[in-house]
Design a protein around this nucleic acid. Structure first.
Lengths: 235, 235
DNA sequence: TCGTGGGTGTGATAAAAATCAAACGTGTGC
DNA sequence: GCACACGTTTGATTTTTATCACACCCACGA
């Protein structure tokens, strides 16, 4: 690992809820095991069914976690942005990856091997508890996805996802909340489990009503109140 | 807690993967905090948004974990059978329940309070690791549900669920694998996110083809090979 | 015993969403 | 600069699934 990177990585880990309660000594013990890898846009980081021998964290860029059906339909399970980790499930239970990870942009990815990680876990019980909280959070989120796809209709699901994207990647502008994340409409469809054509139609329709604006692949929520209403329909 | 119950509970915990690696001493420390409650059929155990102050385990009977949409549609997230625990998410992260729990039959339920449980967790790191594995498993299962509802069509989803039910509650008979679980077609619909009418139609159709047989609310898989093929379609 | 409620079975209809098809833009690399 | 790949946009059509309506059965309690 390049020396120059060490401080950057330390800072990233200190800001991440998986690592932010390690003290300096613990951090020093972990850091030598950390590698950094660089990926080009659309490059595969790992594939479904690969053995899960590492946990990874995004330093820069973005990573898409997704799966493909036999017919080539894609479902996007998550989008990981800088400062957060992914792949911890396979790491923790030692089973295979259950999804593909792909770099969305040019990305620097932190890698921590299972063999370096597990002994550390055994000797740091308070850290295991933190992990448990992270996992609980993931269970809650995934359960919500199940309910959404059972209960919600196309516009509601899309509206809810736009609100989520705005919360996570939003930037306030004078026009509204701009989603700073280049997504194709196909990827957006994968994110809500709907076809690209219908995503387009709904976005266009909201655009005409003045609820959102679209410009070169980014979406801005102009009328946040109405979009929120659409998203909140069933809750 | 009734004395007579102690051994029963100890045995149950020894058979459960959450507790099966505690030694006798640890078990002795935990047991005094365990309560047992009895529930009638259809009785509520907890509701969505209740504070999550305990973890529970099914001693006898069965528990349905589900949620309702604003229009009264039900999605069944899980069915818990004797020997396994539920409600651990809210327990572990201290947040509210995210779903309703209802006794499906007359049920005896083991209850362990958060306040008794957390200190134990902090002092037993190997146990925290076990918990992590359980949570990982749950994430994997729930993620699979998301993919299923994005990728699979009605017959495939139902077939897959029947296979799952047969694996978990199946009893071999001379006719085939009998699912020993009384479920209404409406509940089965909730379990796969489909309408009761269409569940009925699909079951009837398979019945006519001789793939399954139906009798007083229980389903028997007669032609397991074909049902398996239907369920495996996309994988 | 009768009525009533819940579950089941089934056709007709409607709604939601996917799919098919085709035009148009746009940027990148040769 | 031009071709080509990729993304967007839109209309028409089809498929899938839900919804509505109603008959039937059966267990259970008044």
């Amino acid at each position: 690992m390049a020396r120059a990177r060490t401080e950057e990585i330390r800072k990233m880990m200190a800001n991440n809820r998986l690592f932010n309660h390690l003290d300096d000594e613990e951090m020093d013990a972990l850091l030598p095991h950390v590698q950094v890898r660089s990926y080009k846009p659309n490059q595969t980081i790992f594939l479904k069914n690969d053995p899960g021998i590492s946990v990874m964290g995004v330093i820069s860029g973005r990573v898409k976690i997704s799966n493909f059906s036999g017919e080539g339909k894609e479902v996007v399970l998550n989008i990981i942005d800088p400062g957060t980790f992914f792949g911890e499930i396979a790491l923790l239970d030692g089973k295979d990856r259950t999804a593909n990870a792909t770099a969305m942009d040019a990305s620097d990815i932190l890698v921590l091997q299972r063999r370096d990680f597990l002994p550390f876990l055994e000797t740091h019980p308070h850290w295991a508890i933190k992990l448990i909280e992270v996992l609980c959070h993931r269970v809650r989120l995934t359960t919500e996805l199940v309910e959404d796809s059972a209960f919600l209709t196309l516009p509601t699901r899309l509206a809810k996802r736009l609100v989520w994207l705005a919360d996570n990647y939003g930037q306030e502008t004078d026009e509204g909340t701009r989603i700073e994340l280049k997504l194709t409409q196909r990827e957006l469809g994968g994110l809500v489990g709907l076809s690209r054509e219908n995503i387009n139609r709904q976005l266009r329709s909201w655009h005409k009503e003045g609820l959102i604006s679209m410009d070169s692949g980014t979406i801005t929520i102009v009328d946040a109140d109405t979009i929120n209403d659409l998203a909140d329909y069933f809750v």
